[in-house]
Design a protein around this nucleic acid. Sequence first.
DNA 1: CTGAAAGCGCTTACAG
DNA 2: CTGAAAGCGCTTACAG
Lengths: 346, 346
Amino acid sequence: MKPVTLKQIAEQLNISVATVSKALKDYPDVSIKTKTKVKDLAKSLNYKPNSFAVHLRTKESKTIGLIVPEIVHHFFSNIIKGIVNEAEKKGYLVIILQSNESYELEKKQIDLLLSQRVDGILISLANNTSDYEHLNQVIALNKPLVMFDKIAKMVSCSKVIIDDRKAAYDATQHLIDIGCKRIAHFRGALLPLNSIDRFLGYRKALLDNNLPFDSSLVYMSEFGDMSFEAGQISAKKLIEDHKDVDGIFVNTDLVAIGALTELKRLGVMVPEDIKIIGFSNWFMSSVISPSLTTIDQPGYLMGETAFNQLYKEIIAIKNKEETAPQTITLETKLIKRESTEIFSKN
Amino acid sequence: MKPVTLKQIAEQLNISVATVSKALKDYPDVSIKTKTKVKDLAKSLNYKPNSFAVHLRTKESKTIGLIVPEIVHHFFSNIIKGIVNEAEKKGYLVIILQSNESYELEKKQIDLLLSQRVDGILISLANNTSDYEHLNQVIALNKPLVMFDKIAKMVSCSKVIIDDRKAAYDATQHLIDIGCKRIAHFRGALLPLNSIDRFLGYRKALLDNNLPFDSSLVYMSEFGDMSFEAGQISAKKLIEDHKDVDGIFVNTDLVAIGALTELKRLGVMVPEDIKIIGFSNWFMSSVISPSLTTIDQPGYLMGETAFNQLYKEIIAIKNKEETAPQTITLETKLIKRESTEIFSKN
DNA sequence: CTGAAAGCGCTTACAG
DNA sequence: CTGAAAGCGCTTACAG
């Protein structure tokens, strides 16, 4: 069974394709009688416009592209959900691609989406993306592009982020406030701006509090891998290298949970011996024991916001209005839990 | 800047659009010289075929639709990843939609995808989907449809599933094997086949072992909600109602973790007083304390398998071959952890 | 080896 | 109020 076309409806009713098209779209210059006839038949035949034909004419695809480094990830899957839900409300479909933290793949995927003629692109960059030609190409085509979470400052497009430096500062300050003097940092990979910023926030908090910054207390796992195992490995090394550490600020919750688990295994008490704070507020962090103090990052809201910014720009371009790139910074929040609880003995 | 078209390339080279099209697609009847000229210019102009025009002609969209009840979900996000990765390998893009466990939305989304002229649809049903008209409509259009995880037996299409009944049986049997005599079950909603099957597997294991089946030991949270909180609530009720329970088989890990947390709060020891087994093997289950015994469900593989089945059917239809619906059952595995560990005192 | 022509299924400015 | 016509950007069977 082939999909029904306007032509078939027109033939059955003995009117023109043009009239059928206009009737279905409620043009004011079609008689009510004709409209009713057309709509009834369309409904009973289960007519659905062929989107390719529509889009070829209208130059609108009502589809956007989304590239994330990783789908199986509490933060990103919340972002995806926010984007998909918001897009649907506005009548847009979302094509989703996963760059797998690979710049090469990311580049190919941008080409794919461009070829697909999506109306706009949302992207969170792969860790090793340091060349932005593929992104500038999108901008050159006057196609809306919005980056979120993992962004590149150099690219002239709208961005939705959190203030990673401030959030990391807050996290470190919290450790200091509850008495930590020797605070380690498990950082992310070298390139991504947010891992740099979190590191800088950590360092600034130390310096502002007259605590020495000691680079040997900064750990990065191989390839900047942000896994549970990475947290275990760094924690093990830390305990071997530094007996005097009393706090750790970890770049992301999953790594923090790995660290927590390893410390437990080694007989190091959290929070009594070492206090830990993570970053992201994964659901998991609230249910492990001890529960993990962390920074809440609004994933769903970030997705919604990113889509809405993209939508604004799509509409603006349609109306031939100018838009200047916006940078929207969302609030983060310190979530205090057991891993940094203060004990009376302190 | 508008996207480059074949016509522009043709004009610049003073040849016909037809020749340009064939040159780019390496038709054997175009001279090497022309091919080289065309390809070079296409590359330098950054030509990308307009997918709408291509698809309008070829009737292939190289796009598939994916509907899941929930994106933020360890199991489903693994499935999504498997689908997206496998699809990309075969040159397909994935449009993702979330039904939010709503039949109404699911129905609308099928229409959207049909209108989008996707080449095939992958779906995991919403809990309250009991009418299959929207799915049969897809089949009537001779459009490939593959259901995974949450399926409807009545619909005549390919399915990728696990053997929920057997897996639940195995889980319950494990509790029995380690000495449990009064085993409760926290079940899922009434309608979805997999929650029914897990219940039936649980009951059969009891009966096969000559343990009485007691329906007051089967708990369902309000609306069949499968959250952490649902697990807490059911656990609380269970402890109030039944002092003698020594094991719980929970429909899904998240609920099991909620139960575990509540039991801890109430001072009930796991596994000493009550042993718990979950279902799904979420990552979280391995890191909580006590770690959760569970049934491993192969999410990524299920996504890959579902896409590949869909792909086969897309190709078959293209080649006008007949295909019979397949049902593919993937293996599950019992993962023993601390929540069912046997103690010597036993 | 190259190109003219038809056509995929729509939309819309225009004529009547 | 209705319809003929052009055209979106491709592909492909056919002619030369």
